[in-house]
Amino acid sequence: MSEKEIIFCKSGGCTAKLGAGVLEHILERLPKGQKDENLLVGYDSSDDAAVYKLNDYQAFVQTLDFFPPMVEDPYLFGQIAATNALSDIYAMGGDVKTALNIVCFPESMDLNILGKILQGGAEKVQEAGGSLAGGHSIADSDVKYGLSVTGIVNPKKIWKNNGAKSGDKLILTKRLGVGIICAANRVKQAPEGAMEQVIASMTTLNRTASEIARNFCIHACTDVTGFGFLGHLHEMMDGRLSSVIYADQVPVFDGAMECAEEFLLTAAGQKNRNHLEGYVKFEDISFGMEEVLYDPQTSGGLLFAVPKAQADDLCEKLQIAGLPAAIVGEVTEQKKSEIFVIDYKKK
């Protein structure tokens, strides 16, 4: 498909998200209303999805995600947007049940393009084991697509993003560098084969990683998306813990650090850096690796906080399933620096 067929947005995918600082400023001022004891997880915790308790054994998980395209192929865009939206259910430890399409589309554009977007999304909902139950569309000047998704989880087995404990190991299930590679591809400077690797990752459901992890004691989980690895790790630390990240152990797409060194970056990545400057300390880490850690991910992997005794076993089982999972750091008691990034081999 040509760029004329899909408007190639400057901030497609999760790079289109509002900055974390802006959201915090707005959300803290919203009226809370009377507390509902059955609302187990709401927006006040910066978690991946809302969770509402139905009974002692069931709660439903609700999430919503949509964005402009970051690839030219409308079918692939539909797959990526749907995979990304479905991920929040898996990040809470839940199973996908239903999904609704959210569509913004120019009336002057070929409707066959919209059909391919919706086809890609519908196939991913089916792969997730869910049912596409409808949706809503509006006429807009640009293309945007995503899903509202409902899942089911045991209320006693919810994975919140802020339950990590000192001593936990941190496991990441997908490689980083999506935003950087997409930015390089936009100006036709992405390394050969890099975009294909990124697309394969963005269209891989986090279902397998989530299902494997349910056999372990997961203290906290989040999916790594628009706020970058460090932004989502910052939320996981919850203002009460610190962490050490082993930069040389973090899985990264081939060529991503080299592209970053050439300043093939995203504006969203710089927003992430500005927001997190006071929380992160780097020790002898290259500029390219710093940018990878700040880089906004579209349909990124899951980040688990798991007891040290279980970390190697979980990581091995994720790898056997074909995922590029790695132990990328550990959680510590609160220290002066919330996030300390080092090379494991030099520690």
Rank of each mutant, 00 (worst) to 15 (best):
E261D: 12
K10T: 10
E290W: 03
C14R: 06
K281P: 02
K169N: 04
E333C: 01
S166H: 09
P251L: 01
A128D: 14
K124D: 08
S141A: 08
A99T: 00
N162D: 15
Q297E: 15
E338A: 07
D312S: 04
L76S: 12
M257E: 15
V341E: 13
Y57G: 05
A209Y: 02
G163I: 13
N162L: 10
Q319A: 01
V292N: 11
N185K: 02
A267D: 14
A220I: 08
A311F: 02
D36A: 10
L318R: 01
K317F: 07
L302D: 08
Y43W: 09
A81S: 13
A59C: 12
V178M: 13
F60L: 07
T204E: 13
A133G: 03
G177A: 04
D48I: 01
V224F: 06
P155W: 09
T266Q: 05
G322I: 02
N215V: 00
I89K: 06
F77H: 11
K4I: 00
Y57C: 06
D56M: 04
G130L: 04
I285K: 08
P251G: 00
E333M: 11
L39W: 14
A16F: 06
E316I: 00
Q319W: 01
R273E: 08
K157E: 15
Q310W: 00
Y43M: 10
G130W: 08
I285E: 12
P155C: 11
H232Q: 10
P69A: 11
G33D: 07
Q249D: 10
I181T: 09
D47Q: 06
I218M: 03
A139P: 09
V187F: 09
G163P: 11
L118R: 15
G130C: 05
Y75E: 05
K17M: 15
G21R: 03
L64T: 03
L64V: 03
E262S: 11
P69K: 05
K271D: 10
A128W: 15
N38H: 14
S108F: 09
F304T: 04
R240F: 01
V143L: 02
K17H: 15
L39H: 09
V252G: 05
E283H: 03
E37Q: 12
S131H: 06
I117H: 04
Q249Y: 04
G135F: 06
G19W: 13
Q197T: 06
A49T: 04
T150M: 14
E192W: 03
P68G: 03
S242D: 14
F282P: 15
D56Q: 11
V103W: 12
F105G: 04
G226N: 04
V143E: 03
D47K: 01
L230R: 00
N154F: 02
I199G: 12
V178T: 15
A50V: 06
L39N: 12
E5G: 05
F263C: 02
A139F: 13
H232Y: 11
R175N: 00
Y145D: 04
D65Q: 10
L40F: 12
A213S: 15
